[in-house]
């Protein structure tokens, strides 16, 4: 088994010790006339943390959302743990249960308590008993540092707390891989770290993660691999060390010069 990146991306990505978990092959997507994803090839190994960065409009969020088919795509294939993404329906729902997703705007269920947010999926999708689901919810809330808010509603929590709950909600499904779509972009600055700390902890525990973010500190600290996107293409992928100190493409150099100067 190999997860070597495709030939047109000669990179120094981590050695092929990971079992491939998410495999994108020649994925193309248009929004009307706009070609947002151009022949995307990307393989994410089990336990790997891949950070996707790039200028806004580069297609990185779309890429993230395509992996669990919240966005459809026209050509190419996406496999998760060896299974190609099916069309919308029960099969896809089952596959999505294995892919955790954390959104920029948290999207906690507004009419349900924090605890119910965590137990809904396990009960309705996994068929877990209420007691088991509650027990697990308590553990997960502890893990993300939200202990006394279980019976509150999302709107009663701060942004940082809501996002940590959203991470716990995704974890409650025991996902094989977690997708983070700019998880800290909607947060006040003082709340960013509490969320990144939880994510760093997850990465350390071996969770497979795809993280779209502008947090370069997190990329350096937690990523195995940085994927740089621009204009709907993967322009460069390498280790964080390599990417931040020695970017090869002009577009990456230009991007880094803009974000790292202040």
């Amino acid at each position: 088994m190999t997860d070597a990146p495709t030939d047109d991306n000669p990179t120094d990505s981590p050695p092929a010790t990971h079992r491939p978990l998410v495999v994108l092959d020649k994925v193309n997507k248009h929004f009307g006339d706009l070609h947002v994803l151009k022949d995307i090839d990307l393989t994410i190994g089990e336990g790997e943390v891949v950070v996707v960065i790039g200028p806004s409009g580069s297609g990185k969020s779309t890429l993230c959302r395509t992996i669990n088919r919240l966005e459809t795509f026209e050509t190419g294939t996406i496999e998760i743990d060896g299974v190609a993404l099916p069309d919308e329906g029960k099969e896809l729902a089952r596959l999505r249960a294995d892919v955790g997703m954390v959104f920029q705007s948290f999207n906690l269920f507004a009419h349900k308590t924090i605890r119910e947010n965590l137990t809904l999926g396990p009960i309705k999708v996994r068929g877990l008993g209420v007691d088991k689901a509650n027990e697990r919810a308590t553990q997960l809330l502890e893990r993300v540092g939200i202990t006394e808010q279980a019976d509150k509603y999302p709107a009663q929590l701060s942004g940082g707390q809501q996002q940590r709950v959203a991470i716990a909600r995704a974890l409650a499904m025991d996902p094989k891989v977690m997708l983070f779509d700019e998880p800290t972009s909607a947060l006040d600055p003082e709340m960013i770290n509490e969320v990144l700390d939880v994510m760093t902890g997850l990465a350390k525990d071996g969770m497979t993660m795809v993280v779209v973010t502008h947090e370069m500190g997190f990329a350096r600290r937690a990523a195995n691999r940085v994927v740089f996107m621009s204009g709907g293409q993967i322009v460069e992928e390498s280790t964080p060390q390599e990417f931040f100190t020695n970017p090869r493409s002009d577009r990456a150099k230009d991007f880094l010069s803009k974000i790292l100067t202040h």
Partner: peptide, 17 residues
Amino acid sequence: SAGQAEAARAIGLTFTQ
């Protein structure tokens, strides 16, 4: 908000659910 339905689909709920 569309995000509510997206989050629901993302944890594996079907359309009806």
